[in-house]
Simulated assay, not measured.
Amino acid sequence: MATSAEIVAIGQAVAACARAAKSLNAITDQTLSRNTVESFDWAAADADEANAALSAAGVSYSSAEVSNAIGSLAAFQTYWGTHGGNFEKLTDPIV
């Protein structure tokens, strides 16, 4: 059986995860909005330009990998839309 201290520690750890998830959601919204405004197609028409720019910047990922991550972030937004309220109950407001 968990002690009172263990119960509190686990609850606080879950709340910390909830705050991190809320921050990820905010950054995801900003990032995907910026990508939409730029109308940049990472996976197709603009891939050569993106790969050249990424290579020149010395990063180790490709436009296809960025495109895949964008898809995963969009899936996270969908997840947040359904389950975000569960996390919000454990977080402080972002001001």
Results as ranks from 00 to 15, higher is better:
A26K: 09
A26I: 13
A26T: 11
A26L: 13
I27T: 10
I27Y: 09
I27S: 14
T28F: 02
T28E: 03
T28N: 06
D29T: 13
D29S: 11
Q30L: 10
Q30C: 06
T31P: 01
T31Y: 05
L32E: 00
R34F: 13
N35V: 13
N35W: 04
T36Q: 10
V37Q: 09
V37H: 05
V37P: 01
E38P: 00
E38H: 04
S39F: 03
S39K: 15
S39P: 02
S39Q: 15
S39V: 07
S39L: 10
D41S: 12
D41H: 08
W42Y: 15
W42L: 06
W42C: 05
W42A: 05
A43T: 12
D46E: 03
D46G: 08
A47N: 11
A47M: 09
A47C: 07
D48L: 10
D48K: 13
E49D: 14
E49H: 14
E49G: 14
A50N: 02
N51R: 07
N51S: 12
N51M: 08
N51W: 00
A52C: 05
A53Y: 07
A53P: 01
A53H: 07
L54R: 07
L54D: 07
S55A: 15
S55Q: 09
S55V: 04
A56Y: 01
A57L: 06
G58Q: 01
G58E: 01
G58C: 02
S60M: 12
Y61K: 00
Y61R: 00
S62W: 05
S62F: 04
S62G: 06
S63Q: 02
S63M: 11
S63N: 04
